[in-house]
Amino acid sequence: MASIDAANASDRPSAAIHPLWVRVTHWINAIAMLVMIGSGWEIYNASPLFGFAFPKSITLGGWLAGALLWHFAAMWVLAINGLVYVLLGIVTGRFRRKLWPIRPRDVLADTKAALTFRLRHDDLTVYNSVQRLLYAGVLIAGVVIVLSGLALWKPIQLQELAAMFGGYEAARYVHFFAMAAIVGFLVVHVILAIVVPKSLRAIVTGR
């Protein structure tokens, strides 16, 4: 498998920063996430948990039934692609190599450097501590949003899972806050990709 070879080769200086499987799963995930978030906001609007609704212009589906069709179609893409990504991340050792260790002291130092624009991005193959924390965090948020989503979709057939989240109503809040965490990540992630354009090139071409 070409993707595995690329991962094994990533220790060599000439190797790709992001192997092919990372780039493919990244962009499939990006599209699936946008569809899930846009349709999810329309579904939220049908019965808001808080005193606000999402503006119609940024939701997907037009009305509740349309949004549900989008949401329950894109969920397959999100879940299957996510599963492939997590399995390859573990099997190839990429998660361990790239995201570990995360030391609080390093995170503090790197955050300070980033806020004063002194954090360096010379070597894109090594993540700084803030990146490691954010990427590991959004990975966990991704797992939580899929599991809480399953609990909301099947609160009776998967009632043990729903109970883990504190029942159906509590799972709605967990699902919402996991979405909020992912959207928060997305904002930072996109801003930084624009600030450091070669990182955007790396996730497209691999180099």
Binding site: G62, W63, A65, G66
Partner: peptide
């Protein structure tokens, strides 16, 4: 057909 539409117009935001 979906009355009200699944509003693909919103895909333009992608």
């Amino acid at each position: 057909f979906l009355r009200g539409g699944a509003s693909l117009g919103a895909l333009t935001f992608l």
